[in-house]
Amino acid sequence: MTASLILEQLLNGVQFGVMIFLMAAGLTLVFGVMGLINLAHGSLYMIGAFASAAVAAFTGSFFWGLAASLAAAAAAGVLVEALVMRRLYDRDHLDQVLATFALILIFSEGTRWVFGSFPLYLDIPEVLSGAVPIPGGGQYPVYRLCIIFVGLAVGVLLYWLIHHTRLGIRIRAGENDREMIDALGVNISKLYTAVFAIGAALAGLAGAMVGAIQSVQVGMGEPVLILAFVVIVIGGIGSIRGAFIGSLLVGVTDTMGRFLLPEFFRLFFDPAGATAAGSAIASMAIYLLMAVVLIFRPSGLFGARRVES
């Protein structure tokens, strides 16, 4: 085990983390500001990937595909918010879960109806292919470095948006007391649509970027959705900063767990047993992390300690 391998795995962990962050940021915004559980967030991720693959195939340019993914996911978000979510704000969380679960089924079968059952082709653009040397003699794919960069940029942008713009002030105010800002003359319904669209666009962007190195297929959003929920629970519901730190923690824990745990068990067991035990525990690692965080900070790392009214 060399230093370059460990560095490469750390980069992998960070890259995986910022990827989840793009999903978790939208989810936590919607949940924190609007008090809405949106299980269909994974479907918006899938819509982003499919829109990107279709437009990239049509225009021949990955970057048009990326733009299309933002537009398509945001449009789908606005539509979902206006047609379905708006009726659910005052309802129980269980009703929201049921309705958004139905949306998952509708989006999945709708996508299959339009694009067929076979995975779509989407590849990374020529300019971003290949690998660059990293310190210690290893190599790292350029595209993954780009994902890290985009993720960090989105993080900074969101921070600026929430803390230094009028929209951000309204979002924070809406989070604290939605009736009060409504009474102060802010159009809460437009604000909610905007927040939902931002969340959806981020999910779409994540879908398009990941689609280029993974498989663009129906149902691709649900596994990521579970990770995103783990992240917002760890980070504290409604906190963008929490989602960012939580994503990095989950990304690095998962990657390093998959890499180091089998090695660790090899000190005690024979290779086959160590591989089996190590991979079994590695797949639990992030849930163990979540349990430990919740024991010490029941509302997550950056969760507001809300007074229940």
Partner: peptide, 17 residues
């Protein structure tokens, strides 16, 4: 010899190994 998670979509860690 590696067993990956069923449904795993990111193989960067395995490819590094």
């Amino acid at each position: 010899e590696i067993y990956t998670k069923l449904g795993q979509t990111d193989y960067a860690a395995e490819i590094a190994q």
